[in-house]
Design a protein around this nucleic acid. Structure first.
Lengths: 228, 228
DNA sequence: TAACCTTATAGTTAATTTTACCACAAGTAT
DNA sequence: ATACTTGTGGTAAAATTAACTATAAGGTTA
């Protein structure tokens, strides 16, 4: 099947899918159900078809793990060492996705024995060079969220400033000052006050904010630089 | 030839080679001497062999344009749209290199009609999607030099602070304050005072500095973050 | 119902960094 | 000797950051 005519047999795509829930950053892994890597955990991946672009291929892989659309998905890096794939020469293009874990309905693909979220600081051993891909992608994400407002993709559409803080703490793996963090973000004028409040919490309800891509783009035009 | 057994026929490598001289940032282009793109300018590129990693392939392409070694070379991004290569489906991995233009001896490869440095703000039309690759690589570089001390690779081993300033002005395409720029860099303790001076200038000779990778790595360990 | 949690939110202040300058130094050219 | 050019060090106001403090706004509990 892998050698069929409609796929490029020297090239694959692998996706690092990040999720966030309750102060924890997660990554989605699949357990292979067939082939020589049977039983091993790995990044969701697939071959590239001749009639799809690499972005479309990555998108297809993402869809195969879930039913929700409109997800943040970007190319990360291409891995092409000689020994990375034992059977034959295969180069893989790694993508990464940021998803709202609550809305993400998992379902394993036909060749997968299992699908599961793992805390990023506690991942199992993985097939091929996937551990290396994952680790370097995580440190890439760490850098990226400080220079571009993409973290919001990991949160619900409406979120509190504490959730945002905890997201950054999870990704950067360090404590941040709550008060200063609030001020920094509010001052950017990037967040929209939804005028709504948290529901069903056993303490003072926090304001819910949302992130508006359009506002960000307008700020960009004015020379705004996002920095955390 | 392109279909021969020892190359992966769906994958190529293209290199964006940057150089700097006299306040100007340049990119190296080759003019194709054979094939359907004969006479067109393009990024130096080649096919990937089955017995070399993608980093090695990029390195080989760089060597084919020059005789100097030890050049800064990093992967940039992979381009895989369906229509990017007309003849058949080819995905290309773009690399970028930063070279000291003075030490870089040009020589055209066997299939090249010409090799030439072009000012980055004044490049000719290019074959395939190479213009897109180049433009996005340039804006990537703009971002990169502000967060990592890689600009030095474009300068001679010993350089003045004015050269460094002009380099940043060229890449960022904006004027910078000379005095403040000096202070910022000197305060980082990243530059080594070589105790030498400029020679043969018709004005006060400036101190020559050099960049030491080891010092940077030691600073990194201490939590130093490079920022321009 | 009053005291007591917990988290939200608004300051305050000192330290640090940035920005926009100015002044003088050290050479060459006329 | 004077003018000119670039190098280099400095200053002071403005802006930002970092470390805290204080109070508000709920729900929970004795």
């Amino acid at each position: 099947m892998q050698y069929s005519d409609n796929i490029i047999d020297a090239l694959s795509i692998d996706c690092v899918i990040f999720g966030f829930k309750d102060t924890q950053l997660y990554v989605l892994l699949v357990k292979h159900g067939i082939g020589p890597t049977l039983g091993q955990w790995a990044l969701p991946g697939s071959w590239i078809r001749y009639n799809e672009s690499i972005d479309e291929a990555a998108s297809r892989i993402l869809s195969s793990q879930t039913s929700v659309g409109n997800i943040y998905l970007e190319q990360f890096k291409t891995f092409g060492d000689l020994e990375r794939f034992p059977a034959r020469r295969v180069i893989t293009i790694a993508y990464y996705a940021l998803v709202n874990i609550e809305k993400f309905e998992l379902h394993a693909g036909p060749t997968e024995a299992d699908v599961q979220w793992f805390k990023v600081w506690d991942v199992p051993t993985m097939a091929f060079d996937h551990k290396i891909i994952f680790e370097s992608c995580l440190s890439f994400l760490k850098h990226k969220v400080q220079h571009e407002p993409i973290g919001f993709n990991l949160l619900p559409a409406k979120f509190t400033l504490l959730q945002l803080l905890e997201l950054y703490e999870a990704i950067l793996n360090q404590k941040l000052d709550k008060s200063n963090f609030r001020k920094k973000f509010l001052k950017m004028n990037l967040l929209v006050d939804t005028k709504e409040r948290q529901q069903d919490v056993s303490h003072r309800a926090a304001t819910l904010y949302s992130f508006d891509e359009n506002i960000y783009n307008k700020l960009l035009d004015k020379g705004f630089i996002f920095e955390v």
